[in-house]
Amino acid sequence: MEILVLGGTKYFGVHMVEELIRKGHNVTIATRGMAKDSYGNRVRKLIVERTSANSMAEVFRNKTYDVVCDNIAYCSNDVKFALDSIKCNRYVMTSTVSVYDDLHINTLESDFNPLEKPLKWCDRADYTYDEVKRLAECALFQAYPSQNSVAIRFPFVIGTDDYTKRLYFYIEHVVKGIPMFIDNVDAQLGFVSSNEAGQFLAFLAEQECTGVVNGSSMGTISLREIITYVEGKTGRRAVLSKVGDNGPYNGAPDYSLHTGLASEWGFDFSPLKSWIYELIDKYIQEAMVKI
């Protein structure tokens, strides 16, 4: 298939593109041309300003794709600029756990219905991140009801290629004895690996199923469990303090995403604890080297 990827030069987008290439698809990536990539001549490349309606219309005039995988639709106008400019049979949009107003254990897709929220056209800076992502879903399913499309809601995505370094923050602070403030140390949190997130996106590009779907590793883990593991591996002790550096996952409640729908569609996620400790071990090694 001819597949266009909006974004795709970092993080789980790279895993998605590599998986699409491995499966034999013809992939085009469209970016601002600012980030380097390792694809070489294995993909076609287009330069576009994603947030400009004029740029999107000009670059994609007379172009048609079987599938568009949109990793960077952050707001309703982003969706509009894409679907008003690009002809495609299927649209795969990366969404987020942040669309849920009330996260809890076994959060279901039905806990947020984008058809029930009033649609507002907005740019990325008009509202908070969670609100603009909700409105992006509203735009997709309300303004383009006949479009074959799916929106994937991911929890915290982690991996050695995680440029946000959010999980690494906790490991580094334990290893180096840096004080940190954590307001949810015992909350059970959901995660997905960047590799599996990319695989799931590539999988959905080939399917016909539509609507919204959760994508998350099976099971949860608390920050206390992570910290205790790091302490046991290193012999060092975490310094928890109200005046320490604020933990990047502060404010997150006990939550997990129910992934029964993904399983029904044919994709089974790995158990979280089958791979997260290996990732933590790598972060420990990285932090120890920097002491």
Score class of each variant (00 low, 15 high):
Y144M: 07
H258C: 14
R124K: 10
D66G: 07
I171R: 03
H15Y: 14
T220I: 04
T94F: 06
I226Y: 05
D126C: 05
P155E: 03
A151C: 04
A252P: 00
Q147E: 13
R42C: 06
H258A: 10
A252T: 07
G244N: 03
L119H: 10
S270C: 13
D161G: 08
N54V: 12
F200Q: 06
S216N: 02
F154K: 09
K23Q: 15
Q207C: 07
K45T: 13
V289N: 12
P155R: 07
T210E: 13
K282W: 03
F191I: 02
G13A: 05
S217T: 08
N246L: 10
V132P: 07
Q285T: 14
P114H: 11
R44D: 13
F154C: 04
L279P: 08
T259C: 14
V185P: 00
V97Q: 12
Q199H: 15
E231A: 09
S274V: 03
L135I: 04
G177H: 04
M1I: 06
D161V: 01
R224E: 13
L46F: 01
D183N: 15
V5R: 08
H104T: 11
F12W: 12
K290A: 14
R50F: 04
G244W: 00
R50G: 02
E2R: 15
G215N: 08
G40Y: 09
M1V: 10
G24T: 01
L103R: 12
N41T: 14
G247T: 07
R166Y: 09
E196I: 12
Y144R: 06
R22Q: 14
I158A: 10
A238S: 03
D281L: 11
G159A: 10
E19V: 01
E225W: 05
D254M: 01
F203T: 07
M56G: 11
Y144G: 07
G33D: 06
K165M: 12
I178M: 04
Y91T: 08
G159I: 02
L261R: 15
V230G: 02
K176I: 00
G211T: 06
M56A: 10
T128A: 11
R236Y: 09
I152F: 02
N148F: 00
